[in-house]
Simulated scan of single mutants.
Amino acid sequence: MSVTIYHNPDCGTSRNTLAMIRNAGIEPTIIEYLTTPPTATTLVDLIKAAGLTIREAIRQKGTPYLELGLDSPSVTHQQLIETMVVHPILINRPFVVTPLGTRLCRPSELVLDILPQPQRGAFTKEDGERVVDENGARIKHG
């Protein structure tokens, strides 16, 4: 069984997602995309498989998004992809690929929808939010 996470270890959402994958007893392939960015083709495939538009997959906060003029409607999809490959900080995170699908896991508990194995116990995110109970069941909030 293959599970891959496009991971940024400095990102809490990415760390929580990785921890939930491991809480299911899965050791994923970890791609630290800031140091090993996906190719343009891989990035397009990830975005399509996740059911997103290219603009939905771009991270604006804490990136050179505005400085690069990417907010302009005249910037083409191809230009956006090429810029994301050159500046991988623009890739929203984390993308996770499993046999059950591909998701941009924001919030991190979206990974639970595509994990091929159940959670093995309780899970609490770094901010203290409980998302899985002691029986491995997802806690519904709201």
Rank of each mutant, 00 (worst) to 15 (best):
I5E: 01
I5Y: 00
Y6E: 00
H7I: 02
H7T: 03
H7Q: 03
P9V: 08
C11N: 07
C11W: 09
C11L: 09
G12Y: 10
G12F: 04
R15N: 09
R15F: 07
N16R: 00
T17D: 05
T17F: 08
L18K: 10
I21H: 14
R22A: 07
R22M: 14
N23Y: 02
A24Y: 11
A24N: 09
P28H: 08
I30H: 00
I30D: 00
I30R: 00
I31N: 13
E32Y: 01
E32D: 12
Y33I: 05
T35R: 15
T35G: 11
T35A: 14
T35Q: 13
P37S: 04
P38A: 09
A40E: 12
A40V: 04
T41E: 15
T41W: 12
T42C: 15
T42A: 15
L43D: 07
L46S: 00
I47K: 07
A49F: 05
A50G: 01
L52H: 13
T53P: 11
I54S: 04
I54F: 08
E56T: 02
I58P: 13
I58E: 15
Q60K: 15
K61R: 14
K61I: 12
G62F: 04
G62Q: 04
G62D: 04
T63M: 03
P64W: 13
Y65D: 08
L66S: 14
E67M: 11
E67P: 05
E67I: 06
E67A: 15
E67V: 01
G69F: 05
D71L: 12
D71V: 03
V75H: 10
H77N: 15
Q78E: 14
L80H: 15
I81M: 02
I81Q: 04
E82W: 03
T83C: 10
M84S: 06
V85Y: 01
I89C: 11
I89R: 13
L90S: 13
L90E: 14
P94T: 03
F95A: 05
V97M: 09
T98Q: 10
P99V: 03
P99K: 02
L100F: 09
L100Y: 05
L104Y: 01
L104D: 00
R106F: 07
R106A: 09
P107F: 11
S108C: 12
L110G: 09
L110H: 11
V111I: 10
D113R: 01
D113V: 06
I114Q: 11
I114T: 05
I114L: 10
R120K: 04
A122S: 10
T124S: 03
K125R: 13
E126L: 11
D127M: 04
G128L: 08
G128H: 13
G128E: 15
E129G: 05
V131W: 07
D133M: 11
D133A: 06
N135Q: 07
